[in-house]
Design a binder for these strands. Sequence first.
DNA 1: TAAAGAAGTGGGAAAATTTGGGAATTATTT
DNA 2: AAATAATTCCCAAATTTTCCCACTTCTTTA
Lengths: 152, 152
Amino acid sequence: MGQLLGEFQCRLDEKGRVRLPSSLLRQLNDLGGYNLVINRSVDKCLMLYPKVVWDKIKVKVDKLNPYVKKNREFIRYFYRGATELSPDSSERILVPKALMEYAEIERDLVLFAYNNKIEVWSQANYDAWISDEKGDDFSDIGEEILGSLNDE
Amino acid sequence: MGQLLGEFQCRLDEKGRVRLPSSLLRQLNDLGGYNLVINRSVDKCLMLYPKVVWDKIKVKVDKLNPYVKKNREFIRYFYRGATELSPDSSERILVPKALMEYAEIERDLVLFAYNNKIEVWSQANYDAWISDEKGDDFSDIGEEILGSLNDE
DNA sequence: TAAAGAAGTGGGAAAATTTGGGAATTATTT
DNA sequence: AAATAATTCCCAAATTTTCCCACTTCTTTA
């Protein structure tokens, strides 16, 4: 049951802070609090996890044997950049510079929440992604997943 | 419970010292103190252990029967370069030169903390590693670990 | 459509963190 | 034993982060 949902346009202020939209704050609160963990994700976006969600995933990753090369690489890949965050007294978070650079965020950004996690995109990259019409390519997956919905 | 988390950009000062970021210090403190052990790890990075964590691992390694060749090799592998460290009165540590050379650290470095340990990388090697998009290779491990999350 | 409340923005100022280096101390070399 | 190098202690300046308050904008309601 995915608790987080929404797409939010935000902007860094002078000091590099992002205010979390109040709708998101309410959802986070329901999920267990404002504590967050952020890391690098794929496709040049960042992933923001409610601490509760992060901890669940982390437990599994930590079980992997790091002396196996492939596991080790996965572990690092998963953890890369991972940093704990919590909003300041005005519900703003300060994302580490290195991560901002990775995501190519300068001023405008998008918070894209679904299924217990929040993707963080630069507005530009997000727009490019959205406007890129790749709809047709999903016919097979779409069929498989959603096709069955019509049966019920 | 893995208590350490975070990615920190650091730089050696004139005297070759690294200041431990205060966030990390707080975490170390919670874990049992500022005493550390560092050794050579794989992939040209160093591994920094809180003393408490090191001691636990050490116990296990020391139990290995050294008359088995493979064990013996692992033991050496594990101990190579191991040195005890503790920060000076300004919370800075001085990493042995030989280890710095091994990790190819000249000035800029990254502390990458996860699961109770801290990897120490040269900024250059770390960046190279980060930017290397190897996402697809993990579909199998990722599936196993992250796929199941959606069930709950 | 005015008023009230909620949401979001901006920035001054205090607090905390980080950086840099002088000087004292200890260790090493010759 | 003197000279040199390495390590450590300590303080001060510079930077970053955080706290706090005020202002603007947006939304809702009467």
